[in-house]
Amino acid sequence: MTDPSPPPGTPAKIVLSGVRKQFGAKVVLEGLDLEVGRSESLVVIGGSGTGKSVMLKCILGLLRPESGSIRVDGEETIHYSRGDRERLLRKFGMLFQGSALFDSLRVWENVAFGLIQGRAMPRRQARELAFAKLAAVGLGADVGELAPSELSGGMQKRVALARAIATEPEIIFFDEPTTGLDPIMADVINELIVKCVKELGVTALSITHDMASARKIADRIAMIYQGRIIWHGSRDDMEHSGNPFVDQFINGRAEGPIRMQVRAL
């Protein structure tokens, strides 16, 4: 196992150490350590049920870990009050797996939501910005007036991406950004993510089990298995990591040290 720290010279933006989370008797995160450097794109790979989503939700404060430390910009956030939490969340944007667009609002209102509700920006101004963000992800002005349910999955993903970047956050989380998309649309989304991350200079933390996506958007890759980070390194190191778990996962083999949980616990 290697020491989970970012490349030297990059100050860490998010530091998790010893994070432990369990639901009832089931331990999901078992002392997880992870560092995400400023302006780097870290992709956490891992199978279903290894605790990837739970990790993101712990950092956002949607779930509270039993123990451990989560620092953002050097500040410990585990015991934040609600007010501090809301202030912290202004730094974050998130692209949800199922897009999670508000279906009671039109597309542009979805994109402008964080600006209007979170930052109290006047509607007219937020609307203009929303259309600019929609254009940035390749969607025309006509889409802005539609309801989210009228869009295809790929377009919904783009809108969700526009919403995640609309408030110009410092950190963006991507939760399975390509799941449920065809390979071409998946690549379009990957390209958009790379473009947004580079242009905005944000810190990106993604979780995925899609290796094509991971290879495309990652500066650095970490692998999570049974609630711990078992390997991390640069994108190129991954191909010859010498770690049997990583090898099995990135090549998608059924045979190997990782045993799939076929039956429920």
């Binding site: 404060g61 969340l89 202004r90 998130m94 949800f96 999670a100 939501f113 509700q117 979170g118 408030t167």
Partner: peptide, 10 residues
């Protein structure tokens, strides 16, 4: 996850 999305939008 729309409720989680609300939280992340402050």
């Amino acid at each position: 996850e729309q409720i989680d999305a609300l939280s992340t939008l402050a």
